[in-house]
Amino acid sequence: MASTEAPAAVAPAAATERTPFSQHLWQAGTVLALIALIILFGALRPEAFLSFGNVRNILAQIAILAIIAAAQTVVMVVGDFDLSVGVTATLAGATAAALMGDGTSIPLAILAGLVVGTLVGVVNGVLVAYMNLSAFVATLATLTSVGGLAFIVTGGTTLYGMPESFFSIGQSRPFGIPLPIFFAVIVAVAVWVVLRFTTLGRRWYAVGGSAEVARLSGVNVRLARFLAFTVAGFLSAIGGIILVSRLGSASATSANNYMLLAVAAVFLGMTILRSGAANVGGTLVGVGIIGVMSNGLNIVGVSTYFQQVLTGIIIIAAVTLSALKSRDR
């Protein structure tokens, strides 16, 4: 950044600014936590935890969470919140499964699942962007209704017996790597590219930074928020369909738990940027922390009850970190 043409560009050295070092330490905190967890579990059970097989195993376990967390990231970039990503994934997966059970072809069933998920996003988008409901209220309502629809679609039972070739989406391993990992990478890269290199991404970040500033800069704020929710619905549907293929079954609540984990991952990731904005890189670190925690604690043999307590503590830590940071702004 050698701006020789601007002789007046001298650093103002504001007195209130943190020193760059402590600033970096703050931002690196979440990454350090991930590294610390890896070192901890690696030291406890080196042969089991750090093996290639287990790394692949962790990646496979977090692939679907990564996709749904990417959906939540998009909504949180615009400063909103989507409580319905989990049930949307469930409903989309269940729809595809039910249609395949009735003999619909695989591509058509998948397409229908994606359409259903996108539609839920569209409803959220209309409610929040155009009818000015708070994102919390709107998505709480869709969370409830869509959760009910998932029970209706599955008839309350667990659907199974989809065609074998459908299972390859979630269960096949090209080059020895589970296919869901590839999907997660594709979705994460796509969301990252959109957020970073497109005008749409720029608008989303501007709306999240300050909706009023964005509006007065000529951004169509309503459209931007609407699109964010729609994209989140679509991405959640991808996650839900992969989950059904991975498990070979679709229940009425199979992906619901992903919502809270996704929110936790995004919050963790928000601590990474100085601006405190949601971002894909940070979200993936957050997803990594959650995945490593769960896998590591299983390997060490800690009970699931205690694991759940720890997950909550991690969320609190993340929110606290974000709050400490945003006080700077």
Partner: peptide, 27 residues
């Protein structure tokens, strides 16, 4: 109303100038 405080100078300027810094939606 004027600036997004957490964003960089260039990102703030870009918000109102997206047509000028993009082609077919790519920034």
């Amino acid at each position: 109303q004027g600036v997004i405080l957490g964003d960089s100078i260039q990102d703030n300027i870009a918000v109102a100038n997206l047509p000028a810094v993009s082609r077919a939606g790519w920034v």
